[in-house]
């Protein structure tokens, strides 16, 4: 399915005015174009073209093993860490291919942050967890400016009130949900434009999950969010756009459909999407 087709269908589907975004459109924060990701000779993601809209939440859904994490991790070149991994096609960010030879991976990762499945705060104080990112990226704020930055980040991650009296305590002593919000605060502190989240709530209880979901709604005013989730209700609740992925017979993952979330959940075009979102599959 080409981008254009998708856009036209979206325009058809909704009577409201829709921008017909083209490749390279400034409405896109990030754009995978004909992206394939390989682990050695195994193709985990095949020919995915996926636009990620600015200040929106885009959800990646699909059965387990279909390449959601792989696709997400190719958006900040985290897959570079896997020996033998390589990509074909490209991921475009401000009109530049992240995989261009002269691209600075370190800078890419600062501007496209990531929150992981299992909360992974550093075994350091809450303060140090947040201050680490700005510091290693060469931010030379004074002590009081750093305090301010730490506070602002924790506030945006809706964690400040809970931790303001124990900033010196280890981040690992917090509850799971608080740890995950600390990880979000840590990511925010380096001023990313995009935040990638790989099943950020799968290790959390329902209350903590709800907190993170609410937080995402406020975060999207300032950031673009891509979230991988295996939880259909979560995708329906939080995301604006949903991309449905599926494994092909050769086990390569492909994107079979992408649309506004409400369309995906009410009248998907693909039968497999309908089966999946209604719980009859995977």
């Amino acid at each position: 399915m080409s981008l254009l087709e998708a856009s036209i269908m979206r325009a058809d589907a909704s009577a409201k005015e829709q921008t017909l975004a083209q490749p390279g459109d400034p409405a896109y924060a990030l754009e995978a174009r004909n992206l394939s990701v390989f682990y050695g000779s195994f193709c985990a993601v095949r020919d995915v073209t996926l636009p990620v809209r600015k200040n929106m939440i885009t959800a990646l859904i699909g059965p387990s093993g279909c390449g959601k994490s792989t696709l997400l991790r190719s958006f900040n070149r985290m897959n570079d860490r896997v020996p033998g991994s390589r990509v074909e096609g490209g991921v475009f960010f401000h009109g530049q291919d992240l995989y261009a030879p002269n691209m600075d991976v370190v800078d890419v990762r600062r501007r496209i942050g990531m929150v992981f499945q299992k909360p992974n705060p550093f075994p350091k104080s809450i303060y140090e967890n947040v201050a680490f990112g700005p510091r290693i990226n060469g931010w030379h704020g004074s002590k009081s400016q750093m305090d301010e930055l730490v506070e602002a980040s924790l506030r945006r991650a809706a964690l400040w009130d809970e931790v303001k009296d124990k900033l010196k305590q280890p981040g690992t002593a917090l509850s799971g949900g608080q740890q995950q919000r600390l990880c979000i605060a840590r990511a925010i502190a380096v001023q990313p434009e995009v935040i990638l989240m790989d099943e950020p709530c799968s290790a959390l209880d329902p209350v903590a999950t709800l907190k993170i979901e609410e937080l995402m709604q406020t975060l999207k005013q300032d950031y673009t969010i891509v979230i991988v989730t295996h939880n259909m209700q979560q995708a329906a609740r939080v995301s604006d756009y949903t991309a449905m992925m599926m494994m092909r017979p050769d086990r390569a993952g492909e994107m079979i459909e992408m649309d506004e979330t409400k369309t995906i959940f009410s009248r998907p075009r693909d039968k497999r999407t309908e089966d999946y979102v209604s719980g009859r599959f995977g």
């Binding site: 370190v106 600062r110 990531m114 992974n120 705060p121 075994p123 680490f132 290693i136 990511a187």
Partner: peptide, 10 residues
């Protein structure tokens, strides 16, 4: 920990 650090641009 390595991934968390690298993801921050370290």
């Amino acid at each position: 920990f390595r991934e968390a650090s690298l993801a921050l641009g370290a």
